[in-house]
């Protein structure tokens, strides 16, 4: 079974109602509050807003969105919600687990 590391981290973001910007492999950037994440790192965003509605007007009328994990390049998380120390210690624990 694959590691649940990222899924657990994103679930934490969901609980704290964090708004992120997801950048897809084709350059599209969508900002919204994450409400769901799964094993394949697919995301559900509520009230999605496209970062550049003039250049990319295709998705500006969406109420909610489901984003396929395989198309995601980056998930931009705001600095104040990042919780660096938590992330770093979780990474170290994960590395230890995988070595066992």
């Amino acid at each position: 079974m694959q590691s649940q590391f990222f899924q657990t981290y994103f679930r934490g973001l969901i609980e704290r109602c964090v708004s992120v910007t997801i950048e897809l492999k084709n350059g599209l950037q969508i900002q919204g509050q994450i409400t769901y994440v799964d094993d394949n790192l697919n995301f559900n965003l509520v009230d999605p807003e496209v970062s550049d509605p003039v250049k990319q007007p295709q998705l500006i009328t969406l109420k909610n969105s489901f984003i396929r994990g395989s198309t995601v390049k980056y998930v931009h998380i705001p600095q104040e919600e990042l919780q660096e120390e938590v992330l770093i210690s979780a990474c170290k624990n994960e590395v230890k687990k995988q070595k066992q």
Binding site: L24, Q58, L62, K63
Partner: peptide
């Protein structure tokens, strides 16, 4: 082949004049 799937806000759509919307097609992934 799906990248994004979403529910469309029909009211917002009515307020947009699609004849004036000009943009490139989204690049494929």
């Amino acid at each position: 082949t799906v990248a994004v799937l979403g529910e469309v806000n029909l009211e917002k759509e009515k307020s947009i004049d699609f004849d004036k919307v000009k943009a490139n097609q989204l690049p494929p992934i």
